Measured scan of single mutants.
Amino acid sequence: TTVKLGDIKVTFDNPEKAKKYAQKLAKIYQLTVHVHGDTIHVK
């Protein structure tokens, strides 16, 4: 599962960890989390 934020891409083996990371980023940057299959976009 890949978390994308602009040019930053972080890949996790564990989808749950990816989701938590995405939510953490979203909170920090006051953005929202969008899940598209294996990719989680923070924008």
Score class of each variant (00 low, 15 high):
residue 2 T to N: 05
residue 2 T to E: 04
residue 2 T to M: 08
residue 2 T to F: 07
residue 2 T to I: 13
residue 3 V to K: 02
residue 3 V to W: 00
residue 4 K to H: 11
residue 4 K to M: 14
residue 5 L to I: 15
residue 5 L to Y: 09
residue 6 G to F: 08
residue 7 D to H: 15
residue 8 I to M: 11
residue 8 I to E: 02
residue 8 I to K: 09
residue 8 I to D: 01
residue 8 I to G: 02
residue 9 K to Q: 10
residue 9 K to T: 13
residue 10 V to R: 08
residue 13 D to V: 09
residue 13 D to A: 10
residue 13 D to I: 10
residue 13 D to T: 11
residue 13 D to M: 10
residue 14 N to M: 04
residue 14 N to W: 06
residue 14 N to D: 14
residue 15 P to W: 14
residue 15 P to Q: 08
residue 16 E to D: 10
residue 17 K to W: 10
residue 17 K to V: 11
residue 18 A to R: 01
residue 18 A to V: 02
residue 18 A to D: 02
residue 18 A to Q: 00
residue 18 A to N: 01
residue 18 A to L: 04
residue 19 K to V: 11
residue 19 K to D: 05
residue 19 K to W: 15
residue 19 K to R: 12
residue 20 K to L: 11
residue 20 K to R: 12
residue 21 Y to S: 02
residue 21 Y to D: 02
residue 22 A to M: 05
residue 23 Q to K: 09
residue 24 K to A: 12
residue 24 K to F: 15
residue 25 L to Y: 01
residue 25 L to F: 02
residue 25 L to I: 10
residue 26 A to F: 03
residue 26 A to G: 04
residue 26 A to P: 00
residue 26 A to E: 04
residue 27 K to I: 09
residue 27 K to G: 06
residue 27 K to M: 10
residue 27 K to D: 12
residue 27 K to H: 09
residue 28 I to R: 13
residue 28 I to L: 13
residue 29 Y to I: 06
residue 29 Y to N: 04
residue 29 Y to K: 03
residue 29 Y to T: 05
residue 29 Y to L: 12
residue 30 Q to R: 07
residue 31 L to I: 05
residue 31 L to H: 04
residue 31 L to D: 03
residue 32 T to V: 13
residue 32 T to W: 06
residue 32 T to F: 08
residue 33 V to Y: 05
residue 33 V to K: 00
residue 34 H to Q: 12
residue 34 H to S: 12
residue 34 H to A: 11
residue 34 H to F: 13
residue 35 V to N: 04
residue 35 V to Q: 09
residue 35 V to W: 10
residue 36 H to M: 14
residue 36 H to C: 15
residue 37 G to V: 05
residue 37 G to S: 04
residue 37 G to R: 04
residue 37 G to L: 06
residue 37 G to T: 03
residue 38 D to T: 11
residue 38 D to P: 07
residue 38 D to K: 10
residue 38 D to G: 08
residue 38 D to V: 08
residue 39 T to P: 01
residue 39 T to H: 09
residue 39 T to V: 13
residue 39 T to I: 13
residue 39 T to L: 09
residue 40 I to P: 01
residue 40 I to V: 06
residue 40 I to M: 05
residue 40 I to R: 00
residue 40 I to N: 00
residue 41 H to V: 14
residue 41 H to M: 10
residue 41 H to D: 07
residue 41 H to P: 00
residue 43 K to F: 15
residue 43 K to Y: 14
